[in-house]
Computed example of a mutant assay.
Amino acid sequence: MLLSKCLRRSFVLGLSALIGLSSCLAVAGQGKDHHAFNRVPGAQMKGYDKVDYEEINLLLSKPYRLQGKWQVDETERVGGVYTYIHYDLPSNISTIQAFRNYQKLVKQQGMEVLFECDRTCSKDFSIHKIINIFDDGRDNYLNGSSNLFYLVARKGNLNVVIFINDLNNTSVFQYVIEEEQLDDSLISPIALSLVESGKIDLYGILFDTGKAEIKPDSAGELADLAQVLTDYPKLEIDIVGHTDNVGSKRDNRKLSAARAEAVMDYLIDEHSISEDRLNTIGRGQTKPVADNGTDKGRALNRRVEISALNAQVIVEAQQQDNAQIASSNQSSNNSSTSSKSEEKSGGIDMDDIGKAADTAGKIFKLF
């Protein structure tokens, strides 16, 4: 059985990694069932992981092998609050029994099934063969191929991915993504690009040919960058200098490093950004984004790239802002409706009964 990346790292590092291994294995005891999906009765939680923001690829068609590589034709990238849970089920519960109950569960939740694959999945692939395509970035254990079932469902911003297979006992790997969308009107283009792509190329930071002194016309773009760093005080970045291919490779690398350091010094001196949040790299001509054979291409290759080392702090800050706005709106709504509620006679609101029924609908009943 394939070991998870967490376990593999511990064996490679040897005895000194046992502390890290123990923390890796201990997460199961810290977890709890997701609020939208109760566990199968008798199931034991073997792994748990939750973070405020992560992304995964929803696999929306059956994986297949082409020229020695595993591929999936239809995928969709989603991001938001991420919860991973690995359950082992009692020995008397078969994989198909668990799968049928999850099908029933998502139906009761009013979720739309985007894709599902029953036992025919087992004939073609093991889960670990498509981990890189699934790409959840969390190193969480995912394995197995015997009696494999797979399901993806969605309702609103709630996405659930279920892998079920036979690993001695029936195992369930459950991933839930509660999508969070950033409000583009409240976030700068630089910050938005750092969240979406992890980096941004800035062309408004200008230098004379062969020199590393920042030109005065660069002040506007540098102020925009400094504002992002001020708005998100936990954000850390790499400042990466790039050149075209005019000149020697050695000189270009030296020049690009000097320009990156000039940007760092400017942010520190002019905008009081802490030095420990900034790192500089000189790539020279080694990472072109366009053809160096044309003037336009060389101009695109001369750039300062900003790469976020922890872009999730932007998302977390936006989530906090959204929560504060929602709380403020809720308080306003409560105050505006309180007088109306006082005019109503006592009794039970049927809408509340409907909501309670929806919540009760997530309880498992095994066949």
Rank of each mutant, 00 (worst) to 15 (best):
G79C: 00
N333G: 04
H86A: 08
D166I: 01
I133D: 03
E74I: 11
A323Y: 09
T294D: 03
S193A: 12
D321A: 15
D352M: 15
D124T: 13
S307P: 02
Q181A: 09
D217F: 05
R253N: 07
S171A: 15
N140R: 09
R302V: 09
N169Y: 08
L60T: 09
I127P: 06
K69Q: 11
Y141G: 03
I19P: 03
L21N: 07
L225I: 10
Q174L: 15
N140H: 00
G354T: 11
V106C: 13
V172A: 03
L59T: 04
Y84D: 00
Q285F: 02
A357V: 15
G29R: 07
D135V: 00
G144F: 05
L7R: 13
V228T: 15
N292D: 14
Q30C: 03
S341D: 10
L21C: 14
L66M: 05
D291M: 09
T337L: 05
G354R: 11
T280F: 05
Q324F: 05
K32I: 04
R77T: 13
S193H: 13
N157F: 07
K129F: 07
K249T: 15
F115R: 12
L182C: 03
D183A: 11
V152F: 08
M350E: 08
Q312W: 06
T280W: 06
N57Q: 13
G210S: 10
A323M: 11
K355G: 03
A26E: 06
S91V: 09
A257Y: 09
E213G: 01
L114H: 09
S328R: 15
E180K: 12
L158W: 08
